[in-house]
């Protein structure tokens, strides 16, 4: 028996290259892409809706990619806010990948967009392994999921830019201390930024948008 060394290429190299291609396309089109990941029912769609409303009011042109295993509910919600949207059904796949996003972008009017929100499939494990080429990655959790979400899924929180804890208005009702979530996140990801929001009532959205470092409207 003998050992043969292998050329040493990364198995997921194709994914990384595709993410890099997406990043270049977004830069070329001057579109800032924001990846929104998070658990099922955490309020990803509501949060994006509130951001859309504020961004449109400020004069930004917004697009969305709505990913779910099936259905077009989120996509229709985005369309009703007046944005360009594309519905993506991943069927049995538990995450989006760079190739799917590339395909989705080819169906969106990229020349007419400033901001693109990509809402991933509700899942706190798989999406972390598949970079999409976006400028920012947000993970959304909500108080109703409990205050141990960060500790239960540390790897995704260790490597994403922003944590949003949504439904803070329900924290008392479900016996959750939001500070515990924020402290856990700070421990795992010292450079990440945490925001408390109540997307249904527009609380905390301003601060979140400010942290995204959006392009200035007058330079477009």
């Amino acid at each position: 028996m003998h050992n043969v060394s292998v050329n040493g290429e990364d198995i997921l190299k194709r994914q990384l290259e595709l993410a890099e291609t997406n990043r270049r396309l977004l830069e070329e089109k001057q579109v800032m892409a924001v990846s929104v990941m998070g658990a099922i029912g955490s309020g990803k769609t509501s949060l994006i809706e509130r951001m859309i409303d504020q961004l449109i009011a400020k004069g930004y042109r917004v697009g969305t990619i709505a990913a779910d295993s099936a259905g077009d509910d989120d996509h229709r919600r985005f369309l009703s806010r007046g944005v360009s949207s594309l519905n993506l059904n991943t069927q049995d796949d538990c995450h989006l990948d760079a190739h799917t996003v590339d395909h989705a972008m080819s169906h969106l009017p990229m020349d007419e967009l400033d901001i693109l929100f990509i809402e991933n499939v509700g899942n706190l494990i798989c999406p972390a392994d598949f970079p999409l080429g976006t400028a920012v990655e947000i993970v959304v959790v909500s108080t109703t999921e409990g205050d141990d979400m960060v500790r239960k899924h540390p790897k995704i929180f260790a490597q994403t830019d922003i944590l949003v804890l949504n439904k803070v208005d329900l924290a008392d009702a479900v016996g959750v201390d939001p500070q515990r979530v924020v402290d856990d996140y700070a421990r795992i990801n010292p450079h990440g930024k945490a925001f408390l929001t109540n997307a249904r009532h527009d609380t905390g959205i301003d601060a979140l948008l400010e942290a995204l470092n959006l392009p200035c409207t007058n330079t477009r």
């Binding site: 028996m1 003998h2 050992n3 060394s5 292998v6 040493g8 990364d10 198995i11 997921l12």
Partner: peptide
Amino acid sequence: LVVDRLSVQTSED
């Protein structure tokens, strides 16, 4: 995520 090496058994072995 990289394959480092393969272990191969040949007739010589």
